[in-house]
Design a protein around this nucleic acid. Structure first.
Lengths: 225, 225
DNA sequence: CGCAGCTTTGAACGGAGTCAAACTAAGTGG
DNA sequence: CCACTTAGTTTGACTCCGTTCAAAGCTGCG
């Protein structure tokens, strides 16, 4: 990430290996005092913000290598909750130490700014998804984004297991469970993918990308004249 | 913001007063090279991300005192565009200088982290709005959020001018123009507010807060038993 | 004055939600 | 090991909120 080996060593010295979590365990809850950022090392995590009336908004699903808790720096309290979707291991990075370190390591400070900025960029992409896209486009986007993230981690881009439920996918995408279920069925009927419970195999990734870009909306394809 | 007077002075020394912008002028466009964060000093600004097919997603409306451009730190390029909604003045803060300064001023670094984190928090609130709320709740949220922000700046919380069009409000809230227009009319009929073009007067703020919290959804009011 | 761009209003449509029920899987405890 | 419970998924039928289409009113500006 643009850090020298000795920089990495210093960073490594403040990282603590946390205990493993089991499915359903909370890493933290909204309102908890914030002290550490966490990096997922294995497993997967769902972040969500519980809203007054018992319901919740799923904010994201997080895979190994991803950093969570950035939203809590704001006022030293977690604003959302994080829960393990399966057996999950994490590393904790005490934020006050990270902060001290970053003020004597400009390269680390730079990385932190970039990381925070990237999170903002991802959120705004999600805003476009929820503000403008159809159910079909949302699920296709979700599947391809999952695919890319698995690929990035050395797993298959076209054959993977989703650790979250249909309900959680729906919540995340701003859709009802039933809609998600129906779309999986439809996509399968159209030979875009094969799905059996949590096991997904993408069969026509190019076509999925077309769907994401809103094909079938105006023109069948964007043939430039 | 937790900075000493001399800290502020040093910060002030790197800030540049930019030229004023007129309605419709771009402060920057998606893809532009990033060099400065900007603070609105007067007027108002719309940020939006132009998507492939000509359409756009409005990401936010920004009032005096607010900082924009945080999303561009990520890779030194602006990911979205910013356009003046009226005659607007801004200050520019060259980011590389800010970064240098923050690495010798821990208090400034801390503020930067908080600022970035706050932006993330605001985005996730918006995700909940777009993912779960009805049209009614969205507009009420928008109006109260505007109200609070005006109040914070010393203006009236119940009587203000919205510098953006109905179309832009709709786009921001994930609604069609017609829906926004109809809702303004309905809110007025219900004596929640008085509206005449861009001039809005909130007449029943408590009731608007009830709407935001999803009143009329399950129970008429959340009377705890 | 006249045009162009907003805004409002009406009517009809449709996508996704809701309701309801059947069908799994996966536990759980006797 | 199997009856029973519980949670998640799928499917169908129906409803409704918000969109879309269409048209008329406004407003402001050259």
């Amino acid at each position: 990430m643009g850090l020298t080996p000795e920089d990495v060593e210093r960073l490594d010295s403040i990282i603590k290996r946390g205990r493993p979590y089991h499915r359903g365990d909370h890493l933290y809850r909204g309102g908890d005092k914030f002290h550490s950022l966490r990096v997922i090392t294995s497993g997967s995590v769902k972040t969500y913000s519980p809203n007054e009336d018992g319901g919740e908004q799923v904010l994201g699903f997080h895979l190994p290598g991803e950093l969570i808790g950035l939203d809590a720096i704001q006022d030293d309290n977690h604003t959302c909750s994080a829960i393990a979707l399966e057996t999950t291991a994490v590393c904790e990075i005490p934020f006050s130490q990270l902060e001290s370190l970053s003020s004597i390591m400009p390269s680390l400070q730079h990385q932190m700014y970039r990381l925070l900025s990237r999170e903002i960029g991802q959120d705004t992409e999600m805003l476009t998804l929820l503000g403008k896209k159809s159910a079909e486009e949302r699920l296709a986007t979700f599947l391809l984004s999952s695919s890319e993230r698995f690929k990035q981690r050395g797993f298959s881009a076209s054959d993977f297991f989703l650790s979250m439920s249909r309900h959680e996918i729906g919540n995340y995408l701003g859709l009802a469970v039933e809609t998600v279920s129906r779309l999986f069925t439809r996509f399968q009927d159209e030979n875009l993918l094969h799905v059996e419970r949590k096991h997904v195999q993408l069969l026509d990734i190019p076509r999925l990308y077309e769907i994401v870009q809103g094909a079938d909306r105006a023109k069948p394809s964007q043939s430039r004249i």
